[in-house]
């Protein structure tokens, strides 16, 4: 891993989120440093996806602050579309726009939202597509691609906006197992190149390999934060231990 700075890119302070009467997130505080990869783990319904959606304003928060590069970003609702250009997000349901070709999908954000010159964006897009091995598909339409290919395109589409931080919301959860690996490889390479990432995933081996820190969320609160080796080998909290047991299959019949 390249040397990480201590510079804080994203600061989450006392974030609270409520759906009707249910407190989905109760007082989350977390700092993400530049170049760091944070993996968020937790049981279903614990609020991890909601947390990611709060970070780029897709969900409104009822309390707390989010700062990007020291500036508060959740104060003005009307400015979110500008902030979102700096925060890239890839979803579980890829959601490429079906009426546009792959290259058109990638060019839409940079040319329309950022007003960049088309030839410059095209060059960047083709370079990124080559890196993920999909340059030959640039004029194809989304329905002609497999799930893994679509997800890799979704990552390229987000990267072309030149974000400072990338959020990944269970991006391999709806993929067939053979295609999961090709997407995870792209994310590993991204991490090696120093992109700041917040990843929500269920792929434990991947989490262990890519994370600088593991954040374990349970019932809307951060239960444990640790380095991957510490978290997976010696979790300190009961809840974390119970969670990790779900993924273990004991061969000896000890119970």
């Amino acid at each position: 891993m390249i040397q990480k700075t201590q510079e804080k890119l994203l600061e989450i302070m006392n974030l609270k989120k409520q759906y009707d009467d249910v407190e989905t997130l109760k007082d989350i505080s977390l700092d993400v440093h530049k170049g760091e990869v944070v993996v968020v783990l937790g049981p279903s319904g614990c609020g991890k996806s909601t947390l990611l959606r709060c970070l780029n304003g897709l969900e409104e928060i009822q309390g707390g602050q989010i700062k990007l590069n020291g500036e508060v970003i959740n104060a003005d609702k009307t400015k979110w579309h500008l902030i979102r250009q700096k925060i890239g997000m890839v979803f579980q349901s890829y959601d490429l726009f079906p009426h546009m070709s792959i290259i058109e999908n990638i060019l839409l954000g940079p040319t329309k939202a950022q007003g960049r010159d088309k030839t410059e964006v095209l060059a960047q897009a083709e370079k990124l597509l080559t890196r993920v091995g999909l340059l030959d598909k640039k004029d194809a339409y989304p329905r002609q691609l497999s799930g893994g290919q679509k997800q890799r395109v979704a990552i390229v589409r987000a990267l072309c906006m030149n974000p400072e931080i990338m959020l990944f919301d269970e991006v391999t959860a709806s993929l067939d197992p053979e295609m999961v690996r090709e997407v995870l490889d792209v994310m590993l390479e991204l991490a090696k190149q120093g992109m700041t990432m917040v990843i929500v995933t269920h792929e434990m081996a991947f989490a262990k390999a890519v994370a600088d820190r593991i954040v374990f969320i349970d019932q809307g609160q951060i239960a444990e934060i640790a380095k991957p080796q510490d978290f997976f080998n010696a979790p300190t909290t009961e809840r974390a231990k119970r969670f990790l047991n779900i993924f273990k299959f004991n061969e000896e019949s000890e119970r």
Binding site: W80, D95, G109
Partner: peptide, 17 residues
């Protein structure tokens, strides 16, 4: 699909765009 709109917003497009 609802996600189309979320995808567009995540890219930083305005509602009009």
């Amino acid at each position: 699909p609802v996600h189309q709109r979320a995808s567009g917003r995540a890219l930083g497009l305005t509602d009009l765009q």
